[in-house]
């Protein structure tokens, strides 16, 4: 909160800095009341793709949810301008009784965008436009879920295993979309285990596994 005002003023003055979109310092996050990650540091600049690595259960999803603002960090700071990040979870947030176009139009309206056609084109969904979402295959649903990213207009994509149930061709579509997004000044933060074929930096979280905290702390004797 104490950072919000200067950033806001910077925004007013049109100061874009060195195109750093997100700066995370010494972040610690919890899952189910227990600390899972600590001391996470990274910066994300425009055009950069950062891949999150680490064994299952290390807290990649937790980190992404924390960055998206869905849960509070227990320590550290996330510096970013408001409304820059969009979160893509395991679940796609699709309504099975709405058509592909209706699903996408809804999210476009929520994010104040008008045109859904670029998104449909990017993920090869034009010919499925009028089909109900429950008649889509798993991979097609995933493509629709990813197409949602394009109608948010947000600069940072925080994605959790985006390529699950995608075939090779669709993974290629996704990689193209990420490349185009980065070229346009966006950035992506992706938790994935497969090689996307995108020039990317790696952030290995293995070393950030939270150590047990001191039991003596004031009013924190439960952690």
């Amino acid at each position: 909160m104490d950072r919000a005002l200067p950033l806001f003023l910077r925004g007013l003055l049109g100061y874009a800095g060195d195109m750093e979109l997100m700066n995370v310092r010494n972040l610690a996050c919890t899952r189910g009341g227990a600390a899972v990650l600590e001391g996470v540091n990274f910066t994300l600049s425009a055009g950069q793709v950062l891949l999150l690595r680490g064994p299952n259960g290390i807290g990649k999803t937790t980190l992404l949810r924390t960055l998206a603002g869905l849960q509070p960090a227990i320590e550290g700071a996330i510096e970013t301008e408001p409304d820059t990040i969009t979160y893509g979870a395991h679940a796609d947030g699709l309504k099975s009784t709405l058509t592909v176009a209706e699903n996408l139009e809804f999210w476009a309206q929520v994010y104040g965008m008008r045109d859904i056609n670029p998104a449909l084109d990017a993920f090869n969904l034009q010919n499925l436009k009028t089909r109900d979402a429950h008649n889509l295959s798993a991979g097609q649903k995933r493509r629709l879920g990813l197409a949602r990213l394009l109608v948010t207009g947000r600069k940072i994509w925080a994605l959790d295993e985006p390529t699950v149930s995608l075939d090779m061709a669709s993974v290629e579509l996704f990689a193209d979309a990420v490349r185009a997004h980065c070229k346009a000044g966006g950035a992506a933060l992706i938790a994935t285990h497969i090689d996307l074929g995108i020039a990317a930096d790696l952030l290995d979280l293995t070393a950030n596994k939270a150590k047990p905290r001191d039991l003596a702390g004031f009013d924190e004797a439960f952690e």
Binding site: L70, T86, A91, L94
Partner: peptide
Amino acid sequence: LDFEDGSLDLLATAPI
């Protein structure tokens, strides 16, 4: 239903 299919997460991070 919105919770199950993830829409609620997305709505909570939306500009509304």
